[in-house]
Amino acid sequence: MSSNILLRLRNVEKVFGDTVALAPTSLEIAAGSFVAIVGPSGCGKSTLFNVIAGLLQPEQGEVELDGRLINGATGHVGYMLQKDLLVPWRTVEDNITMAARLTRRVTNDDRLEARRVAHQYGLGEFLRHYPSALSGGMRQRVAFMRTLVTHQPLLLLDEPFGALDAQTRLEMQQWLLQVWRETGRTVLFITHDVDESIFLSDRILVMSPRPGRVVADISNPLGRPRTFDSLTDPHFVEVKSQIMRLLHGGDQ
């Protein structure tokens, strides 16, 4: 491989009682890449994320970030869910600086950065607003900025746009690609939406349940930058049918 490996999983397994949530899985994620993970419910996507985030201790195997073993250790990744999890009692600015507040004193640099990021990505007018005053899309953007300013090289995004309407979701996908291009982070992106996984990623991991495992690792042939035309590109259609076959069996 030409690029550096940021995240490496070796034979990572997670079991809950009798259920193998994640069968032994090995993965290598290149620094700066955008990797999408698709699969039905119960395929172990979120388990995989929780193991990488350090919320779950794997039964066996190694999780290595930038060469360091981080099994069961938190504080190493950015993490974002479908629920924006903004705290209602803090303003947008204070929500963006949340990670700092949870680990140390919030400095002026933290606040300045929060403001800079908010201005840069179109929420500068709303720094003093409480989350209740924002729309769903704006709230998800704030949640993403909060993830961004943790300065973690690896961002785990678990269906971040799953609760948004189709129109807002398209806007947010474009926006995410812009931010990703400008910040050079590595993104692992869980989604149910096959179109979304292809539209955003360099690489798609298809997962399957019972036991949860990666059944296909597809290198996305779709060129960048991605536009609305990408959605009708022959490469797009080809990859989509490949994934659909994997998810729903051969005859589809």
Binding site: L55, T74, G75, V77, Y79, K83, L85, L102, T103
Partner: peptide, 20 residues
């Protein structure tokens, strides 16, 4: 989920208690 998010950020139990 909010408590878990704080944990992922590396927050101590005390800080999570005070801030969340």
């Amino acid at each position: 989920d909010l408590v878990n998010l704080a944990k992922v950020y590396g927050a101590s139990r005390w800080r999570t208690f005070l801030q969340i």
